[in-house]
Every structure is written in structure tokens, then in C-alpha cells.
């Protein structure tokens, strides 16, 4: 009997390591990734933008302000990176820091042809936008997107100086007018 117990003991001792071998055991790790609500934008050109009007006034058309389109800026590009939040869209609004000094003309932001963004869908364009001290939505329905940061990446647009059909010639002055244009991301 003792021999039998001895045999059984040895068997279990011998088999202990093999019984302890891994048997499809598992462990699980959960990684939570959080994204900040990133919305940043800038412009392709940072220098001052100018619209030059006619330099040779005449008796016939005065300062050259009689045509509907008085002057146009160079092409501008708005660049942005916007992370999605999953529950809301973002818009970009534009306004002037102060009203224009003359009502004879309007300053208009005119969107040019938009191509597909590298990431995200093309925003809904509400242009052309007549700029005023009141903020107006220019681009909307941006869930997420990035325009690229190259020199001509971004949403192309131009500033146009247009004649206001209801404006008064008497409000014109000979001085230059400087305006500050404010772009705002709205969620």
C-alpha cells in the first residue's frame, strides 16, 4: 500500500509542471484615447492686403468708382484644422472690427472655387459675404477637416470692393481706409 501511495505521489509531483502549463489564459487591456476639441486656423498670407483703386481720376467717372466691382485683392487662403467632436458641427464667421467709413462701397469676401480637402468634406459656402461689424457665417457644417498647410492650401477667397448702389458719393474721402477683418470659429 505504501508503494502505491509513493507511486501516486511521484506521479503528481512529476505531472505538476505540465499541469501548470498555460491553458489559453487571457488578460485584457482597455486603452481610452481622448481628443482635444482642436480648432485652429490661419492664412496663407500674413502681410497686409490692399485693394488698389484707379490712380487716374477723370471728369467722366471720377475716381473710377462707378463700376460695380471697384477693386479686387490677391487670392487669399484660409487654412484650418478642426477635430470632430461627434455631436456638433462648426462654422466660420467673418466680420469687421468697425463699420466702413463710407457707405459708397461695400467690402465683400468672395469664395473662389473650392477643391476637396485632404481630410474632411467641403464646408457649406455662404459666400459672397458682405462684410460689416455684424458677424456673418461664411462657412458652415464643418464636422472635422484639415486643409493642408502649404502656401496655396486652404479655402481660396478674395476681397472685393463693390459699389453700393444705395451709397452716397458724399461719404467718400481722400484718405486710405484701413479695416481689420475678424474670423471666428463657432461651435
Amino acid at each position: 500500500m505504501k508503494k502505491l501511495w509513493y507511486f501516486l505521489s511521484m506521479f503528481f509531483l512529476w505531472s505538476a509542471p505540465s499541469l501548470a502549463q498555460p491553458q489559453n489564459l487571457q488578460t485584457t487591456t482597455l486603452i481610452n484615447i481622448g481628443y482635444s476639441n482642436v480648432s485652429i486656423m490661419s492664412f496663407g498670407l500674413h502681410q497686409n492686403i490692399s485693394i488698389t483703386t484707379a490712380s487716374n481720376p477723370s471728369v467722366v467717372d471720377g475716381a473710377g468708382f462707378n463700376s460695380a466691382l471697384i477693386g479686387t485683392s490677391t487670392m487669399q487662403y484660409l487654412k484650418f484644422t478642426i477635430f470632430g467632436s461627434g455631436y456638433s458641427t462648426k462654422s466660420i464667421a467673418v466680420s469687421l472690427s468697425a463699420p466702413l467709413s463710407s457707405d459708397y462701397y461695400n467690402l465683400v469676401l468672395a469664395t473662389q472655387t473650392m477643391s476637396l480637402l485632404p481630410y474632411g468634406s467641403i464646408p457649406v459656402d455662404h459666400g459672397p459675404v458682405q462684410l460689416s461689424a455684424t458677424s456673418k457665417v461664411w462657412l458652415s457644417d464643418i464636422e472635422y477637416g484639415a486643409t493642408g498647410s502649404g502656401p496655396i492650401d486652404g479655402i481660396p477667397f478674395q476681397y472685393e470692393l463693390q459699389k453700393n448702389p444705395n451709397g452716397s458719393y458724399a461719404t467718400l474721402s481722400g484718405a486710405q481706409e484701413h479695416v481689420v477683418i475678424i474670423f471666428t470659429i463657432i461651435e
Binding site: P22, L25, G34, S42, T147
Partner: peptide, 30 residues
């Protein structure tokens, strides 16, 4: 022994939030 073969030290990992500093060129629009 069978019950304790494989273990991990973490169950849930919460890394830092990914933000504008993580962009290919940090804080650069586009």
C-alpha cells in the same frame, strides 16, 4: 498555477489627450 499564468499590470490605460501639440507640425492650422 493554472489560474495565474498570464497577468497584466493595467486594466485601463488613459493616455494624455491628443491635441494641437500632436499635429505633424504642432499648433499649425491645416
Amino acid at each position: 498555477g493554472i489560474a495565474q499564468n498570464l497577468q497584466s499590470s493595467e486594466w485601463v490605460i488613459n493616455p494624455n489627450t491628443i491635441d494641437a501639440s500632436d499635429l505633424a507640425i504642432p499648433y499649425t492650422a491645416g
